[in-house]
Design a protein around this nucleic acid. Structure first.
Lengths: 156, 156
DNA sequence: CTTAATAGTGAACCAGGTTGTCTATCGTGT
DNA sequence: ACACGATAGACAACCTGGTTCACTATTAAG
């Protein structure tokens, strides 16, 4: 490689760590009956939450337009992970709620993430893993959503 | 948040760490005369390397089709970071090479990444940072390119 | 009660990925 | 020597998912 400073490895390793976790998660989710689940879905379902939300709010949470949020909801609805219901108080709004399949996906994801974390603890040791998480917490912002990964990384 | 296991934080922190580094890099690059540089560009320029490459090879390196690589090269060419030259040995091939602007972008990125890493070292301590990198190396694959981030995270 | 703000939707557009097709050129085997 | 398969690049069509603009329906406020 031409230009390979020490600082160049750090972002790569962080991303690869993220990616390997997400890939392992979805391989396991596919085995557990969610073959069509995509990386974005879990995050969106998490952002929707058990309380439900609306397209506008979801867009705000994820940092995308309400139209983009609406399209994502369409996809999740088609996959059976969410459903839309009219709000009696405000007939403009449509509440987006998790279906049992959506809750199942979130529940399994949670357990699988715990398992993957345990595997990391076996490799690098539980203490080092706790330190790694603590260190990352100190150098990253608190705001957890607003990933807006698709688009953000784009080359345009 | 509804479902918030310990294992759920780890991938988020990894991604946020990656993202905060990349965002800071591009904020600084914009200040240093590269306002149109996007996250993907640095990785692609790195993959092209000072030796140059072809669309087919670049596609192989990045894990995308040769057509997609060609489109990315079009963009970088339009921005003035690479240029295409005919290969005298094989007139089918077009060698993609970094322009001085492309080399400048890579050089500055390298220095800025080093600076950002130094800032992390100030926050969490140099020893902890080395441990963090060593630990990540043990849980991530060696293959550094093939990010194929756009698309991989998609919600389709 | 008029008017401004908000929720959702559709259309047009853009970026960037895919596959399929096509031409030009290279390289090899007979 | 030459035919033929493999390769490089480009073009088109299509898909996804993002954007903005425009529009309707409904709520909230002056």
């Amino acid at each position: 490689m031409s230009i390979d400073p020490p600082g160049f490895e750090l972002p790569l390793r962080l991303f690869l760590g993220f990616r390997v976790l997400i890939d392992d998660l979805h391989a396991e989710l596919a085995r557990q009956g969610h073959p069509h689940s995509r990386p974005m879905h879990g995050f969106v379902l998490q952002a929707i939450g058990v309380e439900g939300t609306t397209a506008v709010d979801l867009g705000r949470t994820l940092g995308v337009s309400k139209q983009a949020a609406g399209k994502t909801i369409d996809t999740l609805e088609r996959l059976g992970y969410v459903e839309r219901a009219r709000d009696a108080r405000d007939t403009r709004r449509k509440i987006v709620r998790l279906t049992p399949a959506g809750v199942d996906l979130l529940t399994r994801s949670a357990r699988i993430f715990d398992d993957l974390r345990a595997r990391w603890a076996e490799v690098i040791g539980p203490e080092r893993l706790r330190e790694l998480e603590a260190d990352l917490r100190r150098v990253t912002p608190a705001d957890v959503f607003r990933l807006d990964v698709p688009g953000w990384f784009g080359a345009s």
